[in-house]
């Protein structure tokens, strides 16, 4: 074991890239709501993005190192400290045995991630370590739980510059097979509307609200149930859009007006309650080009990691540090 949970927020679960291949059995992918954050944590610790991390919705917890451990923090920035000293987000840190990591409420966004060197070694179920609470696979973390980790030979003390994706914004979407069920007037109004995230939001999906009338499709209460994928924007009977997330249903009969691109799903999932969202249609060719750029960006994250330089004021025992050697050359 590495980290012992003393206290933890109500919606913290182990998540990796999710479970593929059980769509035909009705089991959706699950996996981290912010897949980019999962990759960023892996880059900071120099390990595989297949490693599982702790996803913390809105609120973290208090974790004690039961042996030396390296951690990384990514996703929605949260208050974080080790033994009372504030530590940087989007960075990796070493913890000694007995040290306590405190992670508070999200300052922006929704989902923060706690990664451990070696990845969280939770049991595999159908090829993934991801909890899927709506399917009753896994459960939320509780006080007294531990975060077991796999073998790790890397270090810590690195940081990564990230773009702000924690306040909503414009999400790029492609037309999907049910888009044509909505007339052009409704589609135009959809892209001209400024939405804000409602209070109904979890890992299944998030409700969007707007002024004015809802968005209805023709004959929408009698549509045949068809496949659903994360990112789909579903209209319920009341005409309120929901952006569907990793624990969404696998099929459903409410029509989908469009689908958010995978590259913009982290931004969608991180939108806090009240945060503003707009939608912009792109062509399939544009969407594939954006996806290519996103995937290339993921593969280059590790090269963008740089040493975490601490502010000398934050270091209580500055003189004990070895300030000259190590790391990298001054010209790099």
């Amino acid at each position: 074991m590495t980290l012992l949970v003393h206290q933890v927020g109500p919606a913290c679960t182990f998540q990796d890239q999710g479970r593929t291949g059980y769509l035909d059995r009705g089991l959706s992918r699950s996996g981290a709501a912010d897949q980019l954050a999962l990759h960023e944590g892996a880059a900071l610790l120099g390990q595989s993005p297949d490693c599982a991390a702790l996803e913390m919705a809105g609120m973290g917890g208090t974790f004690e190192a039961t042996q030396p451990v390296c951690i990384a923090l990514t996703g929605a920035p949260m208050q974080a400290s080790i033994d009372g000293a504030a530590i940087a987000w989007n960075a990796s840190h070493a913890m000694e045995r007995g040290q306590k990591l405190k992670i508070g409420a999200a300052k922006q966004g929704t989902y923060g991630y706690l990664h451990v060197g070696g990845g969280i070694d939770a049991p595999l179920f159908l090829g993934s370590r991801s909890a899927h609470l709506t399917a009753k696979v896994g459960r939320a973390l509780q006080a007294g739980d531990i975060l077991p980790n796999g073998p790790y030979s890397g270090g810590a003390g690195m940081k990564l510059k990230t773009e702000d994706r924690f306040a909503g914004g414009t999400l790029r979407v492609v037309a999907s097979f049910q888009t044509a069920l909505f007339d052009q007037e409704t589609l135009d109004r959809f892209t001209q509307t400024l939405f804000h995230r409602g209070t109904r939001a979890n890992r299944m999906g998030m409700q969007l609200e707007s002024d004015g009338e809802g968005f209805a499709a023709k004959g929408q209460l009698n549509i045949l149930s068809e496949v659903i994928t994360p990112g789909d924007i579903q209209m319920t009977g009341t005409g309120n859009p929901f952006i569907l997330l990793p624990e969404c249903q696998t099929t459903g009969g409410y029509p989908r007006i469009a689908s958010v691109l995978p590259c913009d799903l982290p931004r969608a999932a991180q939108t806090p309650a009240g945060g503003h969202i707009r939608f912009k249609f792109v062509t399939m060719d544009e969407a594939v080009a954006l996806h290519q750029t996103y995937m290339t960006g993921l593969s280059r994250l590790r090269a963008r990691v740089e040493p975490l330089v601490r502010d000398p004021h934050d270091i209580p025992d500055l003189l004990s540090y070895q300030l000259i050697s190590g790391m990298i050359s001054a010209t790099e």
Binding site: V174, A175, S176, F177, A180, E226, V227, T229
Partner: peptide, 28 residues
Amino acid sequence: MAPKQASTFPCIRTVGLDGLLVSFAGSM
């Protein structure tokens, strides 16, 4: 922007960025 709605089956339509749906009817 939006694809034409399928009027004849079977038909092939896109599902988001990375899916295709081969539909054999519009009702069960």
